[in-house]
Design a protein around this nucleic acid. Structure first.
Lengths: 215, 215
DNA sequence: CCTGTTATGTAGTGAACGATACAGAATGGC
DNA sequence: GCCATTCTGTATCGTTCACTACATAACAGG
């Protein structure tokens, strides 16, 4: 009982990949069924038979995004030190958000921001992904504390929120047309001074010293 | 010839303020005319007579946002030093993005991210506002260079991109439900170490020294 | 009063939305 | 050959979209 009935006339994987790009470029609400059927070269009944609904297709598209671009970005956290991990993570984000011929920014970040009656579940799921991603990054920072790379009292939650805020901002800037080099500069700026314990204004004092020494 | 004809039965200013909140909460595409007429308590012909179109109403709403929340955020750049200016700017953003009883995040940042046939002009205008805002911030940083607060070779463009990326990210995090305190922590982290000239890894060396001294 | 002007409420417009009913086409199993 | 099964194209479904035609209501000026 393997393949009974009329065979599918299109490549489901390729269709999913194309749907991912459409959702990535236009968001969930901005992508109409007409966009999908037009872009995939199939008719509505074929789409519904293969994927179930627009919502289910979107969720499959997000899963595919996670296995491709998402994986490329998040595997950077495997770097030996947390500092390298975060530097590479943000750099990889800058690169993934500005690929030639691909939509700019991140599907998980920009796919559905405003909840409405029709996309509430989609919004919730993307939000869950983002929350889970924060846990992953925060855990990586906690490991750095355990390994002595970061001080015991480092606020890993605040650090990870900050790093992800930069990534989210880069996503919007990519969408606004920022070049890859500009995105990379933003990424580098975020980790430029890495972690300096907060001893009242010692950092700016230090900055003044260094600045003075250079003249 | 001041007030001929039947007088308007609603307060145009209050209606505009209410429309601003609706657009702010749901975005341009996510706010239907039914949402607007329902929220404003008027019928479509009254809305069109008073504001012209959904698009024109949105642009007026953005202008109002700029005069209220936008003004509150951007006037912080008047602080005497650039460091204070940026710290206050991001802190004010965190506060404005998390007001009780108001939509979370920023109308200019989140109002319309994905261009489509119907919102292309809106998207373009918001993008213009964001680009103009970057110019304003970058100019403030250049002033700091001229005044000697920042070194001559400071990359004001990259700095302002970075700061605005953090602000954009905070906007999404606010929308994701981050508390005001979390947003403020993110903001503070962004300026925690402020400007340290980039002399190969001197910052992390410094961090290690400080960390060692504390034990 | 009457007239001109402006705003209002009712009730729609055509178009696009996501999703389907249905009949016919293409396969495997017998 | 014939049936059960699955997919395909055509032609919609009912709903919602932004927007408006039209008759009437409420004012100012005369």
């Amino acid at each position: 009982m393997t393949t009974r009935g009329r065979p599918r006339s299109f490549d489901r994987g390729k269709a999913l990949a194309r749907a991912m790009e459409l959702f990535w470029a236009k968001g969930f609400d901005g992508t109409s069924l007409a966009d999908l059927t037009g872009g995939l070269g199939i008719n509505p009944p074929s789409l519904y038979a293969a994927f179930g609904s627009k919502e289910a297709l979107f969720l499959e598209a997000v899963a595919l995004y996670g296995e491709t671009e998402g994986s490329y970005i998040w595997k950077q956290l495997d770097a030996p030190t947390a500092r390298e991990a975060v530097e590479r993570f943000l750099r990889a984000s800058a690169i993934a958000f500005s690929r030639r011929g691909k939509p700019r920014g991140c599907l998980v970040i920009l796919g559905a921001l405003h909840p409405s009656e029709s996309n509430r579940e989609i919004c919730r799921r993307l939000r869950e992904f983002r929350a889970q991603n924060k846990v992953v990054l925060e855990d990586r920072l906690r490991r750095a504390v355990a390994e002595g790379e970061l001080p015991e009292d480092a606020d890993c939650s605040a650090m990870s929120s900050f790093i992800l805020a930069v990534q989210m901002g880069m996503s919007i800037q990519a969408r606004d047309g920022a070049s890859r080099d500009e995105l990379i500069l933003t990424a580098e700026w975020a980790t430029r001074n890495w972690f300096i314990p907060k001893v009242d204004n010692v950092a700016s004092d230090f900055a003044r010293q260094v600045a003075a020494k250079r003249h």
